[in-house]
């Protein structure tokens, strides 16, 4: 195994640098310490998430209501299933990675190639799934109304089912407004995309449809969102609502506090970036395996090192999964 690191002539010299107390190569040890520092970075993010969540413990969005999509099942409420599938894909790609490392110990090049290929495929599927999850999150589903204080008001019917903005609004065709762009106005100002409806259209629609109610961000004792009575709903909507929110970005979030969206983007984004870079590094090592570099070197320790990184990515996901989707 010493062939991976050039020999320095200090072997067997106990007081001359020949002592290896940790009994690993430099590369593997440094991969471990890199993983340690990266683990601390991720715990910093997750602990900050916990901080914000404790700060808004009685108004945090309910994950099951936010992440409830599954491919090809439109409109079906399927909380957890998709993210569970993603978790399995990542755990399985971790298994194929460790099988590749194991095959490397026995110098079986063909097997290493096969298992690394499967690992890379798993990683790519995982990143793709995360992109799909982001798309659903950004697009939003029902839409909501934002108040002066930055609170989110959502619409429900008498049974408590969510109602989307286009079922609430009564469209006023006279009030249609075009988006101001640089090319057709003052050149140094422009505005973001206009929401589909104006707040007046929502107010009118809500006043006409008497079975609609408003749901606030505040959680009740048993963990559901508070639903206001009809009178309170009307009062709240007329006095406090100032705008429409559809979907989520870093400043507005139809599911609840914007912090939820910020942490979601930041943590899953940083993790997704790790998966992406893991796939890239895996591909590089994969090419080397095919070229026979490690056959000539007579050890597959490089596969082991990228394997460590890959397992670490899986390890982080296990925690992200718990704190974003379960707890």
């Amino acid at each position: 195994m010493e062939t991976a690191v050039p020999n320095t002539g200090t072997e067997d010299k106990l007081w001359g640098g020949g002592n290896k107390p940790l009994k690993v190569t430099y590369g593997k040890m440094m991969m471990w310490f890199f993983i340690l520092s990266d683990a601390l970075t991720f715990s910093g993010f997750l602990a900050a998430y916990g901080f914000s969540r404790f700060k808004f413990i009685d108004s945090w969005p309910i994950a099951d209501e936010v992440f409830n999509h599954f491919p090809f099942l439109h409109g079906v409420d399927a909380p957890m299933y998709y993210v569970a599938l993603m978790t399995f894909i990542l755990i399985f790609s971790s298994v194929t990675m460790v099988l590749a490392v194991d095959a490397g110990h026995h110098m079986k090049q063909k097997k290493v190639i096969l298992y690394m290929f499967l690992t890379i495929i798993g990683g790519i599927i995982f990143v793709g799934s995360q992109a799909w999850e982001w798309k659903n999150f950004i697009k939003g589903e029902y839409g909501a109304v934002e108040t002066k204080g930055g609170q989110i008001l959502q619409f429900v019917d008498a049974e408590g089912h969510r109602v989307s903005l286009n079922d609430v609004a009564v469209i006023d065709t006279h009030k249609e407004r075009v988006r101001h762009e640089r090319k057709n106005g003052i050149w140094y100002t422009d505005e973001g995309t206009l929401p589909t409806y104006t707040i007046e259209e929502i107010r009118n629609g809500f006043a006409k449809k008497s079975d609609l109610l408003i749901r606030t961000q505040i959680l009740t004792e048993d963990g559901h969102k508070t639903v206001l009575s009809r009178e309170e709903s009307l009062k709240k909507l007329n006095a406090e609502a100032i705008g429409i929110v559809e979907g989520a970005n870093l400043r507005h979030n139809e599911y609840g506090t914007p912090l939820f969206a910020n942490f979601f983007f930041f943590i899953t984004g940083f993790h997704g970036f790790h998966v992406f870079s893991g796939v890239v590094i895996n591909i590089i090592i994969f090419i080397n395996v095919i070229l026979g570099t490690y056959e000539r070197r007579k050890n597959y320790e490089m596969v082991e090192k990228v394997g460590l990184y890959w397992h670490f990515v899986d390890l982080v996901w296990v925690f992200v999964f718990t704190f974003f989707y379960l707890v």
Binding site: A39, L40, A47, F54, K55
Partner: peptide, 20 residues
Amino acid sequence: SVFLICYLIFILLTEGDYIY
């Protein structure tokens, strides 16, 4: 990692609860 993470979680969650 276990020591630093436990410490970080303890101080941040205590502070979060205080702000709540």
